[in-house]
Design a protein around this nucleic acid. Structure first.
Lengths: 239, 239
DNA sequence: CGCGAGCTTGAACATTATCAAGGCAAGTGG
DNA sequence: CCACTTGCCTTGATAATGTTCAAGCTCGCG
């Protein structure tokens, strides 16, 4: 399992280089750390861990995507995050011996790298630079969640949906001549569960947006964003 | 300004000891760090910084409380956090040279301690233990925000209001013979802005809860929680 | 005592959820 | 290759819920 050279083709190296938190390390440090990484693959629908588990490892996504969700008392899924290539999560699993606050499920065939809790503590003590990178990244995540919380305060549902589409456009969009083609990581139901609304409402609202000429629903997995400017205005992001 | 001994009466020391992130330090380390802390006091309604500013310092609350909010495109205030004694915030100001994502306003006469960005980087490199504590604390905050996001997915408003009251009970409650007396840090309007709903709706819902015998609204600043168990059930926290 | 901020209450209105039925598309098996 | 099945999405009608606007109230304070 241990790679005895620094081959750039090692899948360990792939993980390391995709994640900014390791960018401050020297090549020797990287190769030491990559020797303690574990790998695993998941199929679509498979659970990485469940709410309440104590998996005690930090997970970095190498390929694919993962949704993190809680189940509400009424039995609905509330999606909290959608992680994809290069994202890491599970830091709550490492520290404070807390239980995982959410369930993590693969949205597509997904490959991950993970560190055990003990190893990670060692690394942090030896390389304060990594800790700072992690703090920065967590700070960014908090800022993004604060954005989400604000958008929830926006009563206008249209704004929230536009905001979600814009987020997806940044993360999963490809620029094409007609606009931005968004490859949706989740179904309509997933979007509804992300926004905390009913499936049917998403359908209706997307229908409206299409009627207004802002988007074109290519199929259930792809949406073409035709007018980003108008979308920004709707989302209230240009004030 | 610099305290040349380790007097426990120094207000620097007060800050240090109220915040768990410094708990791993030796007395000498503490006194060094406390020598670079700055202090400031704010009156109710005063702004610590505004959304978009780059204050570049980490703030620890010594006394009082602070609300962090964004203004929605419609002009409503969306409260993101309510910080009180012992909490720290502004980590986004330190790292990544980002702009502050929210405005911070004192809810009461408030005293703070702060670190400048440069000093804090030094401290982190010299004391990895602090970095780990900060990562833990940020992880907890993320977990709390995830709870909040879930509760937003709960369509039942009663649940969300009950959840808020329970949170307040933990943080601002005093046990009295009749139950738990909550000293509200914010007005009804503040609660509404926290939950992203209308003032009037909070009034009506609190009225219902009072009619049901779960709470007693002593006055606008205090609420008596008479039946915590029933409240937990309503909030859906006992599943 | 009178004023004002913040809270409560009422009624009409707007929006979204829910329930129900139908459609579309991909995959399966004969 | 076609009919069938299954999963997901759309659309319609109705009910529930919260918002908004307007008016009146209450408590603390000068």
């Amino acid at each position: 399992m241990n790679c005895n050279c620094c081959s750039v083709h090692s899948s360990d190296q792939i993980c390391m280089h995709k994640v900014p938190i390791f960018s401050s390390l020297s090549p020797e440090e990287m190769s030491h750390i990559s020797s303690i990484i574990k790998h695993k693959n998941y199929q679509k629908g498979e659970l990485l861990f469940s709410e309440g588990d104590s998996p005690r490892s930090l997970i970095i996504i190498n390929e694919g995507s993962v949704k993190a969700f809680k189940v509400t008392p009424e039995g609905r899924e509330q999606i909290l995050h959608i992680f994809s290539e290069g994202d890491f999560f599970g830091e709550q699993n490492l520290f404070g011996s807390q239980k995982s606050p959410y369930t993590a499920e693969a949205l597509a065939p997904t490959g991950i790298c993970s560190f055990a809790k003990e190893d990670f503590y060692q690394i942090l003590h030896a390389h304060p630079g990594i800790a700072i990178k992690i703090i920065e990244t967590l700070g960014e995540r908090i800022a993004r969640m604060e954005d989400t919380m604000q958008s929830i305060g926006v009563r206008n549902l249209d704004s929230r949906i536009s905001g979600l589409l814009l987020d997806f456009a940044d993360k999963y969009g490809k620029v094409v001549p007609e606009g931005i083609l968004i490859q949706l990581p989740v179904s309509r139901e997933g979007m509804a569960n992300y926004l905390g609304i009913a499936r049917e409402t998403i359908s209706r609202k997307l229908g409206q947006l299409e009627a207004e000429g802002l988007i074109h629903s290519v199929n259930n997995k792809n949406i073409l964003l035709k007018n980003r400017e108008a979308m920004n205005t709707l989302a209230g992001k240009d004030c």
